[in-house]
Amino acid sequence: MIELLASSIRLATPLLFASMGGLLCERAGVATICLEGVMLTAAWTAAVVNYYTHNAWLAVTVALWVGALTMGMHAFLTITARADQIISGVVVNFLAAGITPLLTNALFGAPTNTPSIPLSDRFHSIELWGLSEVPGLGKILFAHPPLIYLALALPFAVHFAVYRTGLGLRLLASGDGPEALRTAGVSPGRVRYVALLAGGAIASLGGTFLSISHTSQFTRDMTAGRGFIALTALIFGKWRPVPTFFACLFFGFADAVQIQLQSTTVFGIQFPVQFIQALPYLVTLVVLVGFIGKAIPPLSIGKRLG
């Protein structure tokens, strides 16, 4: 049971980073279906930098910039070049999915994966302030690599930044009423640029976590749709940081439960795995059709700036 919780947290981590990055972008009024692409380029960069420099934190930093730049391309296409936000997102995703195996092939002579990073060069679990000594629970809930703690703290930091700072209010205005922002003498385009660069940097950590913290190499398309699941979590959480946090944990938990239930028989019957895999999305659907509440996106999302 405790192992189930630990597994849920691990599985939720990439979703947390991606959805918080996506939250900044979407609340600023830019539809961001390219979280997948941002995570991929970051995952690739982190794996390569960590492999060559043997320095995990340097890898995180470089990947942060690459993630920001990848999202920066989305920003350029949608804000400066005024391209359609969905199309631009598709472009970024395809580009990332294509360029990462291409570069892997150029560097290592095979497109499928980068070389494995030795255990000693990777992130190690940090045990929190003696809490890990709590019998039973401790080692499992309070002994994780650093990025996981960061992911768990992030939604609250984002909550504070969005609702309690001036920049956050501009962000919300850019998403809900860019004209009002312009009247106040602030360029919504600029706010969106800042939001997307920051969002890209945050989402990049999701990719970095996948390639150098949880596993030890980049493999082609290793995000496996997590960028889109993160978007689902964002919608489920109604574009608000703390509910989105719980949505991510819920998806992570569902995934972990699915792993546990696969190999066990409950009351003599084998659970159909596909059903459990589909469950979180069924719940999302039920939530979104309005029984429990309605998810209203930022008002100007998907619209070009006037």
Binding site: E3, S7, R10, L11, P14, L210, H214, T215, Q217, T219, R220, D221, M222, A224, G225, D255, A256, I259, Q260, Q262, S263, V273, Q274, Q277
Partner: peptide
Amino acid sequence: ITNYVGSTSDAWKNPMKGKELALSQYK
């Protein structure tokens, strides 16, 4: 103990899930 990564072709390229499944089996 038997586990499958998934039921779509994403199942071939999901090392995170591959690791979680292995961890759960080792546990």
